[in-house]
Design a protein around this nucleic acid. Structure first.
Lengths: 338, 338
DNA sequence: GTGAAAGCGCTAACAC
DNA sequence: GTGTTAGCGCTTTCAC
């Protein structure tokens, strides 16, 4: 039976004794700090290896005033875009010493304080937050306690890495307008979603074109919620000829609702998403979508976090990038009324 | 400028002083340990709140011999199935005190020791490993150092939560056989992939039917690698009429390769995946797939981890569940030879 | 119910 | 280059 047995863990003291040096030296050796001769260092590393010693990052963090753990907060793992962001973050951060502590929002309704609290109790040095649902003021309050890097959303006074949602949404709507659509609906997130830039840009662009915006809310961040919202839309009078969705997940929900009613995309309904997820690129899905380059956002956020960790006094990062509309086969010229 | 300022953190000592009790009592109060009167406890919690005290899980873990952090190791975040497993794990674990430390394999070629090391340095109490690429023996070695829960794969002598891959693969192949297919190829993972059960079951089932197995390897765990492997297959002589892929990701790669050649699924090629991912369920994808109920596996793994944390001497868990073949529209009866 | 004292494994002055 | 001495913030006997 090879169950794990609780042995007394090997410590720096053990290694020091084995080599015949002081504990300090062992500590220095493991952090690559200067002041250890090459031979001594080798001897220490050897002995450590022999004894099965492993550096204890937790004790190290406690002893130093330096917090090397990075907290990553995200809304929903099932949404591809967060996986993209997270893999970008991962790319930017060395696994040691910057271990990643994950916190996934629980509540589907609004803010989840427990998720953030768990990160604070874990004493992370910084929180990378992908779509915090709190109002800007509350994010700033959190940032008083521990540095925060807001990803996908700009929060004044807080390090932010995001894409220009206004430009992205405008491009999406203008694309539909250019195809001759006039009845273009928008599927928005729940009403507690503080990220209203896309919706506002949609509304503005519609009004600028002399058209009436039509907004429907998905009451949760799921494909199913979007499907419900779309059902209402598609069964109602004056069905739109095009739908712009807050994200690809929602767009896929709309798509399912459409096909469930025998409507085809883009034949009966043009559809634009946001995220340019892998799914959007599949043959047969071919979803026209705005690409905010999520993985890049994550990578940049990781770098910003590293910098903030090294210099609390660095100027606040405000990193806005440009999204790109990727036109595929889910959008087509509006059909003449029969 | 609301940058984070380094204040001296509030400690239990501060709270104790504020209330006029000993530090011990504060510690007890925060862990709900017995021996604190109701009034005292309230006073402590109040004061803590007032002072902005927050429990330090890291220091607590160091002081106690109890490790409450859970390490989660996974191969690739971009594969939906790991997001499913992870959300299951999340469901089973309370966020406090069981913070989740994430470790994503870096190397695309085989085992990534750094990923596991970072978990050990973070002093996690247990590692939930979703698809460790090491040989069984090495997983057992790791389990000597820290308890391991292997998810999706059975490792003798180590807590394992998995689905019956043999049965799943057999069901997939038999489904294709029943449709009249005889030239059925299999897209396997890279050759360092220790999980060969599906492939073996495929080969066995083929042989039992008097047919010759044809295995192709994707040289990485990506859709693109599968696409390459499939390209070879589809451009070669004696093109198969059906393909069974190691997972949905691979199946989607095969699908792309097929459409890139003007072949349709299931018209020219029947296709079966494994994972029953959300993508498989989309209209227009409609991928026949074996469902190992990944989220459930994750949830069970989380529970097993909790139990192991509480009782190192509990018998080793061997939790095998039954997968289900979900037949959709990517498989059809074989076409008569022109 | 409550408190004192030791110690978890490590880092960080500072002196040698 | 090397060792000594204090802690980091908390838990945990054990005695009161």
């Amino acid at each position: 039976m090879s169950t794990h047995r609780q042995r007394r863990p090997v410590t720096q003291t053990d290694v020091a004794r084995e080599v015949g040096v002081s504990r300090t030296l062992v500590s220095f050796a493991f952090r690559g700090a200067p002041g250890v001769s090459y031979e001594t260092k080798q001897a220490i590393l050897d002995a450590a290896n022999r004894l099965g010693y492993r550096h204890n990052a937790v004790a190290a963090d406690l002893a130093s005033k330096h917090r090397s753990a990075v907290g990553f907060y995200l809304l929903d793992l099932r949404n591809e875009v967060y996986a993209d962001i997270l893999s970008g973050v991962r790319k930017a951060l060395p696994q040691t010493p910057n271990r990643l502590i994950l916190s996934v929002s629980r509540s589907t309704g609004g803010v989840d304080p427990v998720a953030v609290d768990s990160l604070l109790e874990a004493r992370v040095g910084i929180i990378i937050a992908a779509t915090l649902l709190d109002a800007d003021g509350r994010v700033r309050e959190l940032a008083q306690i521990v540095p925060v890097v807001s990803v996908t959303r700009h929060v004044e006074g807080v390090d932010s890495v995001y894409s220009d949602d206004r430009a992205g949404a405008r491009a999406a709507v203008e694309h539909l307008l250019a195809l001759g659509h006039t009845r273009i609906a928008y599927i928005a997130g729940p009403d507690f979603d503080p990220n209203t830039i896309r919706r506002q840009a949609y509304e503005q662009t519609m009004r600028d074109a002399g058209l009436i915006p039509q907004v429907l809310r998905a009451d949760d961040y799921t494909q199913e919620a979007a499907e419900h919202a779309a059902a209402e839309l598609l069964d109602g009078p004056d069905r739109p000829t095009a739908v712009f969705a807050h994200n690809d997940l929602f767009a896929l929900g709309v798509r399912e609702a459409a096909y469930a009613r025998g409507l085809t995309v883009p034949g009966d309904l043009s559809l634009v998403g946001y995220d340019n997820s892998k799914t959007a690129r599949l043959h047969g899905i071919d979803l026209t979508s705005v690409d905010p380059h999520a993985a890049d956002l994550g990578e940049t956020a990781g770098r910003v976090a590293l910098e903030r960790l090294n210099d609390p006094d660095a100027p606040i990062a405000d990193n806005r990038s440009t999204p790109h509309l990727i036109v595929r086969n889910s959008t087509a010229p509006v059909r003449r009324q029969g």
